[in-house]
């Protein structure tokens, strides 16, 4: 059946580009997880009626142009400083729902200090953290979350812990801080995972709106260009390697405890 036939038979549209995702080609590589997460953020903002009140804080990294894709007000932060920028936006604009969207280099290397302290103060913000274990924008260098043995352009023979230290599990660290109310680790590699990730992002935005403290949503992601794999293989590699160090699931939820 064509879409017209389905509609005339009483059917409906069940999936489409989110209204708040701007109609432009995103600059991301084919298969990049960023696109999926952008889509979820746009859907969540729309579903929660936050188009007029949401303020996004974009990072430096692949998502630096996030402000070109989601139709809300944005502030583009200096590298790593998004949680500090969001802190001020949230405190000075109490009616706004403020979120940051950051990669692993931005959030867990250069911005570790701002991340830890914003979470520890319990800033009423949602932090969306894309962890693909690599610096994508600058061409595939080692990130703080790069796995042991993983090859990058600055660890061409694989990450060695004696030289480069251990992969940083920042999400587990953030869970321990009293200021966080919701800490979860998700992925977007399957339809089921996408649904779960969306629910998590939605919860984070609700918490930020309701001033419950800091919500932290890690999305374990792929960087197929940086990893030098097809998108499909990258998803498989992520399942087989990333999930061991960064297991999916809810780490903390003081708002809706199970």
């Amino acid at each position: 059946m064509t879409k017209e036939e389905i509609i005339s038979a009483g059917g409906s549209k069940v999936a489409a580009k989110p209204r708040l995702l701007l109609d432009v080609n995103m600059h991301y590589c084919p298969g990049c997880s960023h696109g999926v997460v952008h889509k979820l953020v746009a859907e969540v903002i729309d579903e929660l009626g936050m188009e007029d009140t949401a303020i996004g804080v974009a990072p430096v990294g692949c998502a630096v142009f996030a402000y070109n894709y989601i139709d809300v007000d944005w502030v583009e932060a200096a590298h790593g400083r998004a949680p500090a920028v969001a802190t001020a936006l949230s405190r000075l604009n109490p009616d706004a729902t403020v979120f940051t969207y950051q990669g692993d280099g931005d959030l867990a290397a250069i911005g570790t200090c701002e991340t830890i302290h914003a979470c520890n103060r319990g800033e009423n913000i949602a932090i969306i953290f894309i962890n693909n274990g690599i610096y994508g924008m600058t061409g595939g260098q080692m990130a703080p979350t790069t796995l042991e043995g993983m090859k990058t352009s600055t660890t061409p023979y694989g990450r060695r812990v004696d030289l480069n230290g251990y992969p940083l599990n920042i999400t587990s660290l953030v869970k321990e801080l009293d200021g966080t109310c919701y800490v979860t680790r998700q992925a977007v590699h399957t339809p089921a995972a996408v649904r779960k990730a969306k629910a998590a992002i939605k919860q984070a935005f609700i918490n930020a709106r309701d001033k419950k403290g800091t919500s932290f949503v890690e999305i374990v992601s792929t960087c197929n260009s940086g990893w030098k794999m097809s998108p499909e293989k990258a998803n498989k590699w992520m399942e087989e390697n990333m999930f061991e160090k960064y297991p999916l699931g809810e780490l903390k939820n003081t708002v809706n405890p199970k």
Binding site: G11, V14, M26, V188, P191
Partner: peptide, 21 residues
């Protein structure tokens, strides 16, 4: 019409329509 394709599409370029007949 399960929309699995649209869910995982990073470029939001898939629309899905469904009817129960």
């Amino acid at each position: 019409g399960c929309a699995s394709c649209a869910l995982v599409c990073p470029d939001a370029c898939i629309e899905v329509y469904k009817v129960i007949s």
